[in-house]
Design a protein around this nucleic acid. Structure first.
Lengths: 240, 240
DNA sequence: GTTGAAATTGAATCCAATTTCAACTATGCT
DNA sequence: AGCATAGTTGAAATTGGATTCAATTTCAAC
């Protein structure tokens, strides 16, 4: 990530420390602009002004805004997944804990950098290759679960592909809610205060329920006891 | 929607039938361009060329691409929800059927007009007001369920807001999967053929499971019997 | 068929942003 | 200190597309 001679993408040689510094300065500036304005509204002069350098310098280090943005976002993702070591403190057998650890990571990203999370969506929409990479890493992050499903559910005749669909839908549920909660600050969702922890737990519980058809151990719940009461009561009949 | 004197949005008077026709022609053309190119890539000349009229005519009927696009998308949504009468053929007590009816609608939209569904996302990202409207209609479409939850789960001490979060997360699961399946044509998701019906059923089952903590009646399943076997087997312990 | 408003044309103009580049400054090396 | 190379500047040129508008055609009314 840091000062490696020869630019990250393409042929924009950086031969001195000062150059590498300037390049990094531009990336950081771009990160701030992206966070506050989003990709489509960002202009080259926004970045250079934010970095405090002349417009022309931009072209010394980057070919266009798109490639700069992709670099910034890749760094962002990498850093977010660096912390993915967070799961390493949870027992392997503690599925709810593992799911929650996973969610913690995602929710924290949304909470801390909603603007960049938005840019991820913008860029995924803009660039098919980037989108594919993002999805691949999403699928990758679900793979641990997909792989274990045959052992988890030995009676189930579920192909890997079917397992992927299931896990994809479960994991996806978070994305929409988090987008509308953090990025779009939806009024209905914010009509009552919701803590980050509650959100994490809620998503984890819903994931767990969908997957295991059970509630997670009650003693592991801190904010969402009300969820375990959602359960089909008598006979499946009702007349509104 | 059709030939009403006085343009839909703003002050672009249409005084003759021919004018209304031309305006509609532009909207239809825009719909086709949006479907194939998306909002950000669309140019005014794309629309006029597609409609077979001169560039200048655009400004007779619309102020800019954004307002035209919003009109087109609103028509699209309205039409999709017109068909929302589809639920009227399902018993009120048949929750699984109702969920499925709901999903059918959404999945059909994605399947038939992936490009326009993409534009919905693009425009929601672009314009806060439009985004709020979309979300409001999303929330609206979940309201029937939110409202019935107290009666469905009389033992649950679940506030309306909490109910919304739950239903939002359940409904959201579809969105991500459908986006990556239909809009982005994700390779992993398409590594095996999946029929529209299977997708609908899968999403409905997952929704049902998350909500009721039960599988839907097996006899109502046609494609996804494998799902009901996903259930926590012995003790919640595993050591991978 | 004449008239005037509405519809339509497309080339000319405008504009915001990107891109280039010749001049200038800073830095490392001997 | 002097030279060569890297880094930096900002104003000028270019670009891609939106926007305007005077001229032309169509149409309904009389």
């Amino acid at each position: 990530m840091s000062a490696n001679r020869a630019a990250a993408a393409g042929d924009f040689p950086v031969r001195r420390a000062k150059g590498a510094q300037a390049r990094e300065k531009l990336k950081l500036a771009a990160g701030r602009v992206l966070e506050r304005s989003g990709y489509h509204a960002m202009r080259i002069t926004d970045v250079t002004a934010e970095a405090g350098v002349a417009t022309g310098l931009f072209y010394h280090y980057f070919s266009d805004l798109k490639s700069l943005t992709i670099e910034v976002l890749q760094d962002f993702i990498a850093q977010a997944q660096d912390l993915e070591k967070i799961e390493q403190g949870v027992a392997r057998s503690d599925w709810f804990g593992r799911i929650k650890a996973h969610n913690t990571l995602v929710v924290n990203s949304y909470a801390k950098r909603p603007g960049l999370m938005r840019c991820l969506l913008q860029m995924a929409d803009e660039d098919a290759e980037f989108a594919a990479a993002i999805r691949a890493s999403f699928v990758q992050s679900l793979q641990w679960l997909v792989e274990r499903m045959p052992r988890l559910f030995p009676d189930a005749s579920c192909t890997p592909h079917q397992a992927l669909l299931v896990v994809y839908s479960l994991a996806g549920s978070g994305e929409t809610l988090l987008r509308d909660f953090f990025i779009n600050q939806d009024a209905a969702l914010h009509s009552q205060p919701v803590s980050k922890e509650e959100l994490i737990e809620l998503l984890a519980v819903m994931f767990y329920r969908g997957l295991f058809l059970q509630n997670p151990p009650t003693e592991q719940l801190n904010h969402t006891h009300y969820l375990v009461q959602l359960q089909w009561q008598p006979a499946p009949d009702e007349t509104t």
